[in-house]
Computed example of a mutant assay.
Amino acid sequence: MYKLIVFFLFCGIGLQAQELNCSVTINAEQTGQSNLQVFRTLKSELTEFMNNTTWTDLNVKQQERIDCSLVIIVSNINSDSFTASVQIQSSRPVFNSTYNTPVFNFNDKQFNFRYTEFQPLNYNPNNFDSNLISVLSFYAYTIIGLDASTYELGGGEPYFEEAKRIVNTAQQQVSDGWSAQSGTQSRYRLNQDLLSPNFREFSNALYAYHKNGLDYMADNTKEAKQSIAVTLQLFNQLYSNRPNNFLSRVFFDTKAEEIASMFSGGPQINVSNLVTVLNKVAPTKSSYWQQIKL
């Protein structure tokens, strides 16, 4: 995506295209009414909304669209009122490989919304139309921003700012997930931290992990692993300044399995200090860190 940004800024071209390749799953088993037509319609309309909305002014080819998914768990339905949670995931390809690395993996438990079958779903940046539209639009920009951040240092900020605009508009209508009172793992907190100068180490780590590590893996695996090991040390500094911070939890929820696999095979490097740091900054993932070969 970074190359696309540079190219079109240079050329002064503002062509538009859809940015996401999003799959949507609706799981309504907990309602006891999973066969209702409304769930099939909702899946179809949300898939179209995520994939056919033009979120940016970038010209993105079909094969360059960001792979992502939404798994919506509906626990209760009462007329047009839905009680639900949503699991959001995204990934991006690693250079010179067939491997897609996970970039974002987050479970939003504050996802209650109203929906009437066949209601139009359109994103308007200046208005609050529904909590359903605001939540999905927020995650569309967060996914795009995190993806851009892996290609260019600070590349995601314009998209996080757009997500902040959604936060500011939505919190005037709905509180759950959108306000400072929504807890430490809310959409509000995620957006605040992604834009905060206090978490600059996170932005640096996200970029270096992908561009100086994974994208270099095909050229020199050992050096790439050493680079990633050094990059992960940044979370030690982040922990010292903000113990148990939200962004670190999001990162390791996304990357723990990949990190464990990466350092459990292939060219061996000294990882004793790395394991110590990982157990300190992400102790809940200790079962993964035990797989790393010292």
Results as ranks from 00 to 15, higher is better:
234 L>R: 11
273 N>S: 14
208 A>W: 11
173 Q>L: 05
223 E>S: 14
169 T>H: 03
237 Q>P: 03
245 N>D: 15
205 A>E: 11
263 F>N: 01
264 S>H: 04
164 K>V: 05
181 Q>P: 04
171 Q>M: 15
235 F>P: 02
163 A>T: 10
172 Q>A: 15
185 Q>G: 04
209 Y>K: 01
243 P>E: 01
152 E>F: 05
263 F>R: 13
269 I>Y: 01
224 A>G: 04
156 G>Q: 07
205 A>R: 03
185 Q>T: 15
179 S>Y: 13
255 K>G: 00
205 A>H: 06
169 T>E: 02
212 N>I: 04
223 E>H: 11
283 P>Y: 09
181 Q>I: 07
191 N>S: 05
283 P>T: 04
197 P>I: 13
177 G>L: 02
243 P>D: 02
191 N>D: 06
196 S>N: 09
279 N>T: 09
226 Q>W: 07
210 H>F: 09
156 G>L: 02
240 S>P: 05
259 I>C: 00
238 L>G: 01
219 D>W: 06
266 G>D: 07
198 N>H: 13
283 P>Q: 07
217 M>W: 12
221 T>V: 06
221 T>S: 08
256 A>C: 05
227 S>K: 12
209 Y>S: 01
172 Q>R: 11
254 T>G: 03
255 K>N: 03
171 Q>I: 15
195 L>A: 08
272 S>G: 12
259 I>T: 03
212 N>T: 10
233 Q>H: 13
230 V>T: 15
220 N>R: 13
154 G>P: 10
228 I>K: 02
162 E>A: 05
172 Q>W: 09
229 A>S: 14
227 S>V: 07
193 D>V: 06
231 T>Y: 04
165 R>L: 06
271 V>G: 00
262 M>I: 07
